[in-house]
Nucleic acid binder design. Structure first.
Lengths: 344, 344
DNA sequence: TTGTAGGCGTTATCAC
DNA sequence: GTGATAACGCCTACAA
């Protein structure tokens, strides 16, 4: 796995601070001071240094700087595989804030079940802090990383002591969604997409189940399936083969889109023959026909908050872990049922 | 911008190799050998070392390793701001391969026009190689980076000497798309989304223009607009206010989606009143109604190829820059016009 | 105002 | 088989 550098490669491509110093006829200490603005440097000297820097196109090696400063100026983020629009948006929100705070972002997507722990440990060793997104890393490893002194922010995941948590509200939105569906007269629910681990999908189903219970309806067990369009399509085919439910509530929009496809295949009308709902409000949800009723998550904001929280932990601005929950919003479109006003 | 580490932070959170050595009663050299499997270590010694490593939860500092090895084991990728599904997919394809090759991925999104050069230089100093995506970094800076010995792979961009190039085929697909639209009887084209710089959108319009010319039709100047759904919506509103064109060919799917929205606002039927086409084949293109006719780019494959090419350059497996073009595919759906078979 | 020297955490080359 | 020790590139007291 370790690749060799080409024979003539010295590792540091550009010039080093020593060459700049020699070029400017000063010591490396002076070069460093001139460049960072720390300590006094005579104007004339500074100018000579800057000239040498320009001429040599010198950029300090991040390795040297980090080693000396004792910080990486980089954060990591690990997120699930098969990452669709939802993860991408969160990632972008995260990167924007992190880079504004002067921190590079190292990403790690979980592809293999087996290797992820090693990769995450590796990653933890090259960053000042880590964001763990969803159900990617086990509690014990997270505890270990926190214990080793690397701040961790959890994103859309069950809490772990010592780590910050940023998530979006699930239960209340699930209740709102359920009430809305009940208002359409739907009684027979299918819950598609079982929580793989302990992530926040469980909270959604709990909210749905509780609300149904209040209406004396027993919610079914969630049906497990892969959280992709294809997963939804396959599950939808299986589901729609037998007696139709009133509504297929999906764990996310991609699933719902897949179910829409399955319904179309069978010549079923949505919402005429059955209702379908998603979660997240990804771009395709808005453009699908019927447009998906879903719950909007503040995706970029989730990422931004995580970056902010991590920064506080790293700088020591805040010492104790905190949990924050972002509001979500029920977005009623057409896939959930025909609305009274449009009924005749 | 530089944040201070908390007072008690030594930079390296975990234990160092010295503590492991002391713990195991050996020298650091032995610890290193035992850990990396380089050089001989007596079985008993190795076991003592491993025990100490486990007990102390030692992970070698990436900084130390990199400094000694003369490599970062990390690659960078810089991509445009406002990055939608297209960029996200490419990024994911890139990360997957890079991480399989044992390289971390550092991302940098271009938010500000002004600061990007400094950020890219910074980034170039902490990676073994760099991918530059689209129209984010100027030719001169790319040349400078290449000149400084950091391999660069360009993605969907005009070539630069010394840098690899991975892009997807534009001209031929543009011709195919145009021929198809002409086949529908469309003659009056609008080209929406002007190339911001010299990226590959220009190639697409060139293909369209050339094909139209062959049919003795003069193509209009491309209309500039922001490459987002919102940009398409606004441009679409302005466009559809006056006389309707036969077709609005858009530089990407997000734009086309926006135009669809604008048409809907004005009560216009697509493809009845006008045709609309996109480019990329993002998820929403498939689900939109009418479903978007577009050109599919192998997004994940683009990223994967870039990662592979960069690896070859870094390892020295290949010394000279190379250009590769990936095939695209015209995806005919319903937004381009009513098809003969469905006509009656 | 400037320079010297020690340290950051590894790896790898030598002797032993 | 094992242990000193010199890199690697930079920062920063401390001296001068």
């Amino acid at each position: 796995m370790v690749r060799e550098a080409p024979p003539d490669d010295r590792g540091q491509p550009g010039p080093t601070i020593y060459e700049v110093a020699r070029h400017a006829g000063v010591s490396i200490a002076t070069v460093s001071r001139a460049l960072r603005g720390t300590g006094p440097v005579a104007p004339a000297t500074r100018e000579r240094v800057m000239a040498a820097v320009r001429e040599l196109r010198f950029t300090p090696s991040r390795l040297g700087v980090s080693l000396a400063e004792g910080r990486h100026a980089a954060n990591g983020i690990v997120f699930p595989d098969l990452s669709g629009p939802y993860f991408a948006e969160v990632l972008l929100g995260y990167e924007e804030v992190a880079s504004r705070l002067g921190r590079s972002v190292i990403i790690l997507s979980r592809h293999t079940q087996t290797d992820i722990d090693r990769q995450v440990r590796e990653l933890a060793g090259r960053v000042d802090g880590l964001v763990v997104f969803g159900d990617t890393v086990g509690d014990d490893l997270i505890g270990e990383i926190v214990g080793s002194g690397v701040p961790v922010v959890l994103l859309a995941r069950t809490p772990v002591v010592g780590a910050d948590l940023v998530s979006s509200e699930n239960t209340r939105s699930a209740r709102a969604l359920t009430e809305h569906l009940l208002g359409h007269g739907h009684r027979d629910f299918v819950l598609l997409g079982a929580p793989a681990g302990e992530d926040d999908i469980g909270e959604r189903w709990a909210g749905v189940t509780a609300t149904l219970a209040e209406h004396r309806i027993t919610a079914p067990e969630p049906v497990a399936c892969e959280l992709t369009v294809d997963g939804g399509l396959k599950a939808g085919r299986a589901l729609l083969r037998s007696a139709l439910p009133d509504v297929v509530a999906c764990a996310d929009d991609q699933l719902a889109l897949g179910v829409l496809l399955a319904a179309e295949e069978r010549g079923l009308s949505v919402p005429g023959d059955l209702a379908v709902t998603g979660w997240d409000d990804i771009m395709a949800a808005r453009f699908a026909r019927p447009a998906l009723t879903t719950v909007r998550q503040p995706m970029r904001e989730l990422g931004a908050r995580a970056a902010l929280a991590l920064d506080q932990l790293i700088t020591g601005e805040r010492a104790t872990a905190r949990r924050q929950t972002l509001a979500t919003e029920l977005v009623v479109r057409t896939s959930c049922g025909t609305h009274p006003v449009e009924e005749q």
